[in-house]
Design a protein around this nucleic acid. Structure first.
Lengths: 139, 139
DNA sequence: CTCTTTTCTGAGACCAGGTATCATCTCGTT
DNA sequence: AACGAGATGATACCTGGTCTCAGAAAAGAG
């Protein structure tokens, strides 16, 4: 079963809690790094062989809309699905060594985004900032 | 035929110039916004029906390695392939209205990336910064 | 210009990731 | 317990992309 905080975030987004959603959330919660579609499907199917492909992807989409899950693209490597502790919009520092992801709160980039936007006369809807490298622990 | 500057960048990367590469580069050069895989395949096949799928993707990969083409991911929408005027590493401001992409040189983000990395004890290999919104012209 | 080496190409099978459809089932409420 | 919106699973299908391999064709050497 997924943690209470995740379950309440699902409810807060106006979505039902079903065994399938709970399972997907739990699998992501227990992983400490982004999971690819394949890894996720495998992990979920290992626990409930009857779960449908479409359901898993639909669930991922709902969880993304609820801001619980993010899809992290990675230049070169394959991205994945990540259950984020931080609930608002935020950014990521991805360690290429251990795979762990550190959240970078929006506040830490807001001023910079604003400055760039001003300089270019650009009205920003969405900013995405991703760093990949080696985390403090792995160095 | 693609522009001389693009052709010389292909050569500089130690790659041969073939009619197929030239064609892919030309199609991208003539588009002023990122093209999806489908659009690109269609545009390329419209000019040379005999060109192979694999060749187009291989070419895209070579051009990416040569820093001539970038693959821009887009949150929500589908990303695409973009021929970049700027040759070094850089970032993008993508207009959701007209689709045009403005380059943001690495220098404009380097200091910020450095500061974030320092604060988090993170050694940065690669930084990706993408803004989407509305460009000055469309506003 | 022709030879040689190296690289590239095209066809087609294959794979990953994801969407569409639709009949059936179940959650949360009354 | 009954109901209706919403979720599910099976399956077919789609996009984007990779792999293989025999044959073709660049670019440099003679």
């Amino acid at each position: 079963m997924a943690s209470d905080s995740v379950r309440s975030r699902i409810l807060a987004a106006g979505q039902r809690i079903t065994p399938q959603r709970d399972l997907v959330a739990e699998v992501l919660e227990q992983a400490d790094r982004p999971l690819s579609a394949q890894e996720l499907l495998a992990a979920v199917e290992a626990r409930d062989r009857r779960i449908g492909r479409a359901t898993v992807f639909r669930t991922l989409q709902s969880l993304q809309e609820a801001g619980i899950v993010q899809q992290v693209p990675r230049p070169g490597g394959q991205g994945g699905y990540l259950l984020c502790a931080t609930s608002g919009h935020h950014h990521h520092l991805v360690c290429q060594r251990c795979g762990r992801v550190e959240d970078l709160p929006e506040e830490e980039v807001a001023a910079f985004v604003g400055a760039v936007a001003r300089d270019h006369g650009f009205a920003v809807d969405h900013a995405s900032f991703e760093l990949s490298g080696t985390c403090a622990a792995c160095r």
